[in-house]
Amino acid sequence: MSPLAHSLLRTLRWSERTLDAVIAPVVFTAMAALIGVITLQVVSRVFFTAVGWTEEVARFLLVWITFLAATLAFRRGRHIAVTFVVDALPGLPRRLARIVALLVALGFLAALVTIGMEYMQVQSFQKSASLRLSMTWVYAVIPLAAAIMAWYALVDIVALALGEPRADVEGAGK
């Protein structure tokens, strides 16, 4: 691999690690908040009067956690995949099959970004029942997470095209 290609790949992988370093604590904090909100909800229902906003906050946190954690799983190759055929292929055909799979995923993720943006716009007039929060903020995670996963897929495609399998991901290079 040329020094320029190696430098490009190193920069792309640095961007992935940086995104991961931001997203992982956000997901952890959101999980802690979700536990706190649900605990408050249970305690308030059992001992006092139910706190009305807790159900809504829990639902919104769960949506955000789901999509952001999906980006972390995508980068680590932890989404469900049937790879026994690809894994059985020799070097170049295996790489090409992985590139094709990533291109399909990239197409899906690009469509999800577009659809998510449209959905945000359609729902922008709607406010949540308890918090009166614009639903745009709730649905913003869809295109955001899809764009992040699309970036990860693009980095993987570049790495495979340059002939270097993902060394920094569990299960890569099998």
Results as ranks from 00 to 15, higher is better:
T39Y: 14
E164N: 02
F67K: 05
L68I: 10
I157P: 02
I115G: 09
S15P: 00
G107M: 09
A33M: 15
I148Q: 04
L112H: 10
A110M: 12
D87I: 09
T39G: 15
E56K: 07
V113Q: 04
H79K: 10
H6S: 07
Q126Y: 10
K174P: 02
R166G: 00
A145H: 05
L40K: 11
G91V: 10
A110R: 10
I80G: 01
I115Q: 12
E118C: 03
F84K: 02
L62V: 07
R10V: 00
A153P: 02
A69W: 14
G173R: 07
I80V: 14
A32H: 05
I80M: 14
A73V: 14
W53V: 12
T18E: 04
L89W: 11
V27M: 09
M120W: 05
L96F: 06
I80D: 03
A88K: 03
S15R: 02
A88L: 03
V100L: 13
F74K: 01
A150E: 04
R95H: 04
E16V: 02
M31F: 15
A111D: 11
T49W: 09
W151E: 00
G52L: 08
V26I: 14
T136L: 14
L34R: 12
L72I: 12
A172N: 04
V42W: 01
W137Q: 05
R98A: 11
L92R: 11
R132E: 13
A73L: 15
T71V: 08
A58T: 04
L160P: 00
W137H: 12
V155G: 02
V158M: 05
T136P: 05
V85P: 00
V104D: 11
A69I: 10
I148H: 03
V27C: 13
F67Q: 05
M117Y: 15
M31I: 14
V85Q: 07
M149N: 07
G77D: 11
V82T: 05
A150G: 10
E170P: 04
Y119T: 14
L96P: 03
L154M: 08
R94S: 09
Q121R: 14
L96Q: 13
F48R: 04
L106G: 12
Y119P: 01
A140F: 13
W53E: 06
A129N: 06
A153R: 01
G116T: 13
L92T: 14
A101E: 08
